[in-house]
Amino acid sequence: MKTVITASGNSVDTQFDKRFGRAAWFCVLDEDTNETLFFDNANISASNGAGTKAAEKMVELGVKKVISGDFGPKAKDLLDKFDIQMVIIQDDDLAVKDIIKKIKH
């Protein structure tokens, strides 16, 4: 199953990014194989609709769960429509690998 974690950089050592639509990077975690893949957010500085575009990408990638700090209303509507689970983590100072550890335990 594919899970996306919003990240501030392109490795599991980087900080978790608490923004969804304007996250710097997306970390796609395959929960079955534990493999991670990073891609940058093409719409990070869009004036409008960054959240919508990020949600669109999640649906396209077949992601089942997204972990971020917050979701805007338009992104939430779209993720809801495609039954993608949204998980909100409010802790500061977490690295992406800490969140992966939490998922595993």
Binding site: N43, G49, E56, V59, E60, K74
Partner: peptide, 20 residues
């Protein structure tokens, strides 16, 4: 230019976000 259109080919989804 306003990211108002969402098109997701694998799920045959195409919609306009009126507020954008």
């Amino acid at each position: 230019e306003f990211n108002a259109i969402v098109v997701i080919p694998p799920v045959r989804f195409a919609e306009v976000n009126q507020s954008l």
